[in-house]
């Protein structure tokens, strides 16, 4: 069994990573999952969160907001709507993301309001995980 697999992280604007990874921890919509080589083929949507890539050199973390991951035995590709290395995330960015999600929640129709509220909570959780203190909007 191979002990590494190809990992690609792409956002619409750029390719952020293309490395040989040992494992990838993905914030899936239904819960976190870790993809390792020879994982069963899976496609999952993402929730906002921190994605961790373990390579021979160490661990890289990326903040992602929504998108999906395609996992096959040979590799994993994550297509994130917005993604950036955790180091690049500033308080300002996280505040913007939370505010944006909160606006969406306010505008959401009755059937989508729960999902939108979850999105806000996910954004806040992501900020906290990175070590910033996002403003908690009043729900």
């Amino acid at each position: 069994m191979a002990d590494t697999m190809q990992f690609d992280l792409v956002s619409p604007e750029r390719r952020l990573a293309s490395v040989e990874a040992r494992e990838v921890q993905i914030p899936g919509a239904e819960g976190d999952l870790t993809a390792m080589p020879d994982h069963a083929p899976t496609i999952t949507t993402l929730r906002p969160g921190v994605l961790k890539v373990v390579t021979a050199e160490g661990t890289d973390s990326y903040a992602v907001t929504g998108g999906f991951a395609e996992i096959t035995a040979e590799g994993t590709s994550v297509l994130a709507e917005r993604a950036m290395p955790v180091g690049e995330v500033t308080q300002e960015i996280i505040d913007d993301l939370v505010a944006e999600a909160d606006t969406a929640r306010r505008e959401a129709g009755a059937d989508a309001v729960d999902a939108a509220a979850k999105l806000v909570a996910d954004m806040v959780a992501m900020g906290t995980e990175i070590g910033l203190s996002p403003k908690q909007p009043s729900l």
Binding site: A29, A40, P41, I43, T44, T45, G66, G67, F68
Partner: peptide, 24 residues
């Protein structure tokens, strides 16, 4: 073509992805 496991499910993913597809 591989048979994928879909999480949450095919319709759920499609509903989530189609709007993104338009943006893309």
């Amino acid at each position: 073509s591989t048979l994928y496991d879909y999480e949450p499910n095919e319709e759920g993913i499609l509903a989530d992805l189609l709007p993104r597809g338009v943006a893309t």
